[in-house]
Amino acid sequence: MLQILSLTKRFGAMTAVDNLSFSVNSGEIVGLLGPNGAGKTTTIRCVASLLQPSSGTILLNGHNVADDPVAAKRTLAFVPEVPNPYEMLTVMEHLRFIAAAYRMEEDLVHAEEILTRLDLWDKRNDLGASLSKGMRQKLACACAFIHQAQVFCFDEPLIGLDPKGMRELKSMMMERRAQGNAILISTHMLDTAERLCDRVIILKKGQLIVQGTVSELKSQLMSSAESSLEDMFLELTEGTPAA
């Protein structure tokens, strides 16, 4: 569903993403891990067509993002790291706008369910300006789930959410996975990635250093079966041996 082929993104002399290739298949949640500055957000922004790749190809459901961005983005839901809602739109108007932008025929049939699960139903008539940081995050997630996307890209979606919100969001992601959607999550929360993701990709300085299921990586890279993803991550990215 999502294929990234030899993606390179340079900002001047700095290479943020270097010849990166991976794919996210239907019914799969893939975690994009890496220290700060590893290129996770840049990769996700390239997928969302917010950044122009220096070279390489991104295919969303078969559509090349560079050649046919509108068709490609029709299948994509994107949640940025720090969402900025429209101050003068209510929560419900955000959803209506997204429905119109994605040309949804069935008008917001799931809105009440999604907003209720994310604790936003009571705030459906509140303006974006009045929402707290966590609520803004939830609103961005609600907008992502409201349309019939096939590929989801989340950039640090759990930051700022309360425990109930985190649980609901994870459960909604798993439901989408069961429906056959492809989900790419960039996160620093390694324990969550370990439990939620089918595969993880670890980036360092823009390059893919390892990918696979958590158990595969453990068996390949760690001497102890009790080692956690955190131990593995630190050893790969910082050279710190597992405790």
């Binding site: 961005p69 983005k73 994107f78 932008a101």
Partner: peptide, 8 residues
């Protein structure tokens, strides 16, 4: 940037 740019 967050809502229109990534939309179709």
């Amino acid at each position: 940037v967050d809502y229109i740019f990534p939309s179709p």
